[in-house]
Write a protein that binds this DNA or RNA. Structure first.
Lengths: 339, 339
DNA sequence: TTGTAAGCGTTATCAG
DNA sequence: CTGATAACGCTTACAA
């Protein structure tokens, strides 16, 4: 069943069929009805490869996700899909393997599929301006941005200020009297990652409050409960006087909490803990965990809006910074005795 | 940059370029090297739409996921992708909106993209044999199957025996002395869902042990902590003598546990709880939650293997049933006093 | 308002 | 071993 068959069966030319199914050009109501009847009767679906080949640009939007298993991304992905579909476009979800360059992967996909636009979710910050310029179609970076030496005019982004939000979390702990605050994140010494930005906020907060930065309080850790668990155990072995834990994600925080609780420590009486992201699981943990909650769904929505504005040429590249909120659920407490 | 340019630049015909980039036919080593040099120099990537149009079948595999936010699926998706890529094929991840018929969505995609094969993950069981037969390419149902009136020769599946595994969980609770066991699942009265299968196992276990089935102990619940939380609160309001909770997923179990703990109840001293799936979060919950753990990654791997066997025509439709394991972490306990 | 026909960038069939 | 050339199914001038 192809466009030719439909044309023959409905007694019109193929151009007319094309006009009907694409709602383009002008077609008389009678003809349209006739064609649609045949289309429906035979359950005709146009061949996307043929139409994407002919059109220089398909209508497909790609979402490049680095860390598809990240629960924080789960709802964001759903919202991106919803918003893209709402605009009549199919969404191609592409998982980017850890360690793979997401821009390269997108570059490949663009050539391969004639993409309409791309959204990047998760990943690193260290792409060159040159690399971005290679991308011939509109794109938005969500949850990531770049180092400052890239001209903001060549890309769009939807982010939170990781450094400032991290600063917020640590300042909160300090305001509660904590001085020995450890930090858990994906190896933060690697530049240009979210973990690194959050580390900068951590360090700045300490410095601004006259607390000396102690690198041995920072532990390398994957974004998962199991990794948070083992990292916390390692930390407790070498440092006995920790009074608070700041985890770069809620998933890490959950693992850290488990490490503390299973040692018989009480949260927040013996030790305070705060995470980052605002995933549902952190709220339903027992005790409920404090966190820096990002407005993930709003960010997803904004990303799609910006992308489509770019596509329609209605606007230039844009950079939106969302506010996160410090959610206090009781897992952080004023310190009573100084270690 | 297209195949013509590459042909011109390397001084050969386009057919030869095609042979080189597809590793098909015979090309002299010298010619191959010459062409590859040009390809690499210009960073040439073939237009997938054109080749998929020409080939009657693309090499794309689609993964139709119902419930992409389900943490149990997260690792499975990653494994499916890994296995598919290992075989040199791109994977198209397609999220299927709740309420949308996944077979119809696949049918559309097949026509649109000339798919090579499809894997269905999550969803319902109530598809007719007729519907399946409409799918003109190999496919595998993962974590779902059909009702018995569909000829097993028309589809493949990779599942666990939900009813039996549920039976296992409930029998375990009964063996610990529990009689008032409640069950939380996505509205189980709807036929042909995973929730319903697990309900059947629950009922059968009760009956086999001479316990009368009490429908008011079954509560409707989405597969999320928040829903598990509110469902449990509802339940505790109407039933005071519950001694154990069986949740149809770990996400529900976590919400249920939070409801109990925040009421000051102790797990497992006051009430026992067991979930289903085996997600990481359940292990790192405090207390760690017992569960029926499914071998998700193995199931994902098996699904891809079966799919490619079907594609290569090496085998007929196959049905694999994996065993789940009852993981005891201490959230279920022998009952001391009968209510 | 509608139909004809020229490609889009490949692959595959043939001759050479 | 290699090179023309005819499709694949569609969109879009352009002509009618």
């Amino acid at each position: 069943m192809n466009i030719k068959d439909i044309a023959r069966l409905s007694g019109v030319g193929i151009a007319t069929v094309s006009r009907v199914i694409n709602n383009s050009g002008v077609v008389s109501d009678a003809t349209r009805a006739k064609v649609m009847a045949v289309v429906r009767e035979h359950n005709y679906i146009p061949n996307g490869n043929a139409s994407n080949l002919k059109k220089t640009r398909s209508n497909t939007i790609a979402l490049m996700v680095k860390g598809i298993a990240n629960p924080f991304f789960a709802d964001m992905i759903k919202e991106v899909e919803r918003q893209v579909n709402l605009r009549g476009c199919p969404l191609l979800i592409q998982h980017v393997e850890d360690g793979v360059d997401e821009i390269n992967a997108a570059l490949q996909l663009v050539k391969e599929k004639n993409l309409y636009g791309v959204i990047f979710m998760g990943g690193t910050y260290d792409h060159s301006e040159e690399k971005f310029k290679q991308l011939p179609i509109p794109f938005v970076l969500t949850t990531i941005t770049t180092t400052k030496d890239v001209d903001p005019a060549v890309f769009s982004s939807v982010i939170i200020d990781d450094m400032q939000e991290s600063y917020k979390a640590v300042s909160y702990l300090i305001s509660l009297g904590h001085r020995n605050i450890c930090f858990l994140a994906r190896f933060p010494l690697v530049q240009h990652t979210t973990g690194n930005r959050r580390l900068m906020g951590y360090i700045k907060a300490l410095e601004d409050h006259g607390i000396e930065y102690d690198a041995s309080l920072v532990e390398d850790c994957e974004y998962s409960p199991s990794s948070g668990f083992t990292a916390t155990k390692r930390l407790l072995n070498k440092k006995k006087d920790i009074t608070a834990v700041f985890a770069a994600s809620d998933t890490i925080a959950i693992g850290a909490a488990k490490a503390l609780l299973s040692l018989g420590l009480s949260i927040p009486n013996d030790i305070s803990i705060i995470g980052f992201d605002g995933i549902e699981m952190a709220e339903y943990y027992h005790p409920s965990l404090d966190t820096i909650s990002q407005p993930g769904v709003d960010m997803a929505k904004a990303s799609v809006e910006i992308l489509f504005d770019l596509i329609s040429g209605q606007s230039e590249n844009k950079h939106v910074v969302f506010e996160s909120v410090l959610v206090k659920r009781g897992s952080c407490k004023k310190i009573n005795k100084q270690a």
